[in-house]
Nucleic acid binder design. Structure first.
Length: 422
RNA sequence: GUGGCUGUAGUUCAAUGGUAGAGCCCUGGAUUGUGGAUCCAGUCGUUGCGGGUUCGAAUCCCGUCAGCCACCCCA
């Protein structure tokens, strides 16, 4: 039997309904805040990600699906969205001349990781990016948007963690301090952290090894080493978040794995997710546009993992929506009449279905019930002879004889009852 | 990339090394033109795949593939 590749899912209708709910909620929230949708390519030159995400990150060094085109150029299936949005922004002169520019995107991302709960090789994200202002008001805006989306799709008990990792200047001071704190304690560090101390000391702070965890208690805090500008920015963000009524927790151990972040970093986490506890994350990246060859342009954004959000939503909240009408017939000329009526109703926006093979009325009613239809229209010998059909309200059980030319109005009357509960 | 657990019907799961089963689902009937509840009957299998041990393997051993979980990392 043919099968799908590992870490890649088929999504059947019940889950598509849940996913549609999440993405349409996100789209609404973005549009209300003035963010407009951008559609970015699924495939980019590998260089876009190598430069944007960082050569040293795990994503670039070992988790990308990369291949060569016929001309020998290296292409990669996008592992995230920000690098592409920045590339598109810099490449398009019309947009990068605007003072502030707000985009959102949604779609599949690809990472060649080992699959587990909440981690797929093909997964979906939505995200937003705001270019052109370094004002912490926008840091607050993207966090508040994500918080609103999470609450509106029914995610409860999540936490919003925030931190600042400063700018390159003050971060260098902090890293020097961090190095000297850990340099006398290398014996107590795990093997991975020995290497981290050299290559990327910030990551020492989110190691989960018990021995390393113990050392963090007395480690220097990055927020104590921020320069005046970064400190003011962080304080202003906290004031804005309080005014926006976003409940947040400061986490000075929150650092990002991607190279492009400056100042604000944040993460939405839920303990219900297990090992992969973050379902959205982002931050400020004031130097990335310049790194891509654009004019220096501050920016802030985030991305959310849609499958991880699905894990946090109670599936019972999305009952499958049944059809409106099911046609029950006795075959032959009655089937032809039922087919006529079926198409007539569909043309008028009423969903209708029938069973073409001739089975008993009992079986057809059973099917109507299973498929969640609200109205059954019966066309048998009697109805054919009198140009009527028997209309049954499947919810109340009431039944009535209706002439053909009144079917549309009478069906509508029943369907509308659902919208006016007494 | 590392480690652990699990692979049996469409699905959820049983089965001391000795006849592969049950619930749900599905189909039909009780009810010849009326669903949901109940009862009855029926269909459904290369026990993931390949080897080995054995008189005999779903069961034990080896390999392999897949899935899940954790680490790593990340959304």
């Amino acid at each position: 039997m043919l099968s799908r590749p590992p870490g890649i899912e088929d999504v059947f209708p019940d889950r598509v309904a849940i996913r549609d709910g999440i993405t349409s909620t996100a789209r609404d929230a973005f549009r209300l805040a003035g963010y407009r949708e951008i559609i970015i390519p699924v495939i980019e030159f590998t260089e876009v990600f190598a430069r944007g995400i960082g050569d040293d990150t795990d994503i670039v060094s070992k988790e990308m699906f990369t291949f060569e085109d016929r001309g020998g150029r290296s292409l990669t299936l996008r592992p995230e969205g920000t690098a592409s949005v920045v590339r598109a922004y810099v490449e398009n002169g019309d947009y990068n001349r605007l003072s502030t520019c707000k985009f959102f995107y949604t779609g599949p991302m690809f990472r060649a990781e080992r699959p587990q709960r909440g981690r797929l090789r093909q997964f979906n994200q939505f995200g937003a990016e705001c270019f052109g202002s370094g004002d912490p008001w926008y840091d607050c805006e993207v966090i508040a948007m994500m918080d609103s989306i999470a609450r509106r799709v029914g995610i409860r008990d999540h936490e919003v963690l925030i931190n600042s990792i400063g700018c390159p200047a003050c971060r260098a001071n902090f890293i020097a301090e961090l190095r000297s704190y850990y340099s006398g304690k290398t014996g107590a560090l795990c093997r991975d952290c020995g290497a981290r101390l050299e290559r990327n000391p910030l990551r020492l702070l989110d190691c989960k090894e018990e021995s390393c965890r113990d050392l963090k208690g007395d480690a220097p805090r990055i927020t104590d080493y921020l320069c005046e500008g970064c400190r003011d920015h962080h304080d202003a963000l906290k004031r804005h978040l309080a005014a926006a009524r976003v409940a947040y927790t400061e986490d000075h151990l929150l650092v990002r794995g991607l190279d492009y972040y400056t100042r604000t970093t944040f993460e939405f986490v839920s303990s219900a997710l297990g090992g992969q506890n973050a379902f959205a994350a982002g931050g400020r990246y004031d130097n990335l546009v310049e790194l891509f060859g654009g004019r220096p342009t501050p920016a802030v954004g985030f991305a959310a993992g849609i499958e991880r959000m699905e894990l946090l939503i109670d599936g019972s909240e999305a009952p499958p929506r049944g059809g409106d009408v099911y046609l029950v017939h006795s075959g032959g000329p009655a089937l032809e009449r039922a087919q006529e009526l079926c198409i007539f109703l569909r043309d008028r926006g009423i969903s209708a279905d029938l069973e073409p093979s001739t089975t008993g009325f009992r079986a057809q009613f059973k099917k109507a019930d299973r498929e969640g239809a609200r109205v059954a229209l019966v066309i048998g010998e009697d109805e054919l002879a009198s140009s009527t059909c028997t209309m049954k309200n499947l919810k109340s059980g009431e039944q009535d004889t209706v002439p053909f030319d009144a079917v549309h109005d009478r069906v509508l009357a029943i369907l509308r009852q659902g919208y006016n509960p007494e």
